[in-house]
Simulated assay, not measured.
Amino acid sequence: MSEKNVKPWVKTALEMGPVLAFFIGFVLLKEREFIVFGETYTGFVAMTALFVPLLALSTLILWRLTGKLSAMQIMTLILVVVFGGLTIFLNDERFFKMKPTMIYALFAVILGFGLLRGKSYLRVVMGEFLPMDHAGWMTLTLRITLLFVALACANELIWRNMTTDTWVKFKTFGLPIVMFGFFMTQSGLLQRHAIAEKDRDPS
Rank of each mutant, 00 (worst) to 15 (best):
F23V: 13
M98V: 08
M75G: 15
V109L: 13
C153A: 15
V109F: 09
G43M: 09
M102K: 01
L106F: 12
A135L: 13
D133M: 03
K30V: 05
A71C: 01
R143S: 02
L29E: 12
F44Q: 02
M162G: 00
G118W: 01
I74A: 12
L146C: 10
C153V: 15
A49Y: 00
L90C: 06
A46E: 09
A46K: 11
G84M: 09
T42L: 11
V27P: 03
L130N: 02
N91Y: 01
V124M: 07
A71N: 06
L130Q: 03
F113I: 14
A56Y: 09
W159S: 03
P100I: 02
M126N: 10
V125D: 03
L79R: 11
W137N: 08
G114A: 05
F37G: 04
R64G: 01
R123V: 10
V52Q: 08
V82T: 14
L111A: 04
T163C: 05
L55V: 15
F148T: 12
V27D: 08
L146Q: 12
A49Q: 06
G114L: 05
E39Y: 08
G118C: 10
T164N: 08
A150I: 15
F51N: 08
T87F: 00
P100F: 00
V82S: 09
T87L: 05
G136I: 09
G118Q: 07
D92H: 03
I158L: 01
E156K: 07
F95G: 04
M75I: 15
L54T: 15
F113V: 11
D133Q: 03
L86R: 07
Y41S: 14
G114T: 05
V27C: 12
F95Q: 05
F107N: 05
R143Y: 03
E39P: 04
P131G: 05
M47T: 10
M126S: 11
L146I: 15
N161D: 08
L69T: 02
D92G: 03
T59E: 13
M98K: 01
I35F: 01
F44I: 06
C153N: 07
G85Q: 11
G136P: 09
V149R: 05
F96Q: 09
I35S: 14
L130F: 05
K97T: 06
L57G: 07
K99T: 09
F107S: 06
D165F: 02
A135F: 00
V36E: 00
G136H: 06
I74C: 05
L122R: 09
L106A: 10
V124N: 03
D165L: 06
R143E: 04
P131A: 06
L60K: 08
M126C: 12
K97V: 06
M47Q: 13
L79T: 14
T139G: 00
R160P: 02
T141V: 06
K119C: 04
G38M: 04
T164Q: 07
L29A: 13
N91D: 10
L29Q: 08
A56F: 14
